[in-house]
Amino acid sequence: MPRLKAGEKSRISFKLNGRKVSGDAEPRLLLADFLRHEIGATGTHVGCEHGVCGACTVRLDGVAIRSCLTLAVQANGRRVDTVEGLAEEDGTLSRLQAAFRRNHALQCGFCTPGILMSLEDFLARGGEPDEGEIREMLSGHLCRCTGYSGMVRAVLEIVEEMHEEQNA
């Protein structure tokens, strides 16, 4: 790969939620800014830009990461998944999304996209996390509205459902 010069834009392409997208980015452009302002995928939010709040969490090659601590150039040629890809094409909410709504797990909804993307990775890793493990995972996110109880309940419900399905 050639050295990308400061201030010069290069073409960045990746699979976003299964579809190829591309745009131009100088080396310093953060992935979060690229997603939001170049691609127009504004569902991913920016809450602190120093990696603590978790609002900007997306999946890079399936792994939940902070898009404010990742450069757009680092995503080139890879797979990025964001909150926009969770629901069905017709808008039907995913099981996780529906559990969030059912349990009043969000209020302002600003932190929610990052939390959902973390959980997608976390739950995909299998196992049957208990409440303590769920809270520990959620501690990588800050939410100021809910006190977290709704989202803990929502995840516990999902884990229970997955458990029953496995046994069925």
């Binding site: 050639p2 400061a6 080396p27 800014d33 830009e49 150039v73 680092q74």
Partner: peptide, 13 residues
């Protein structure tokens, strides 16, 4: 809160 400009290289080795 945005980085200052820099060159970027992802070497292959």
């Amino acid at each position: 809160m945005k980085p200052a400009p820099f060159d970027y290289i992802a070497p292959e080795s």
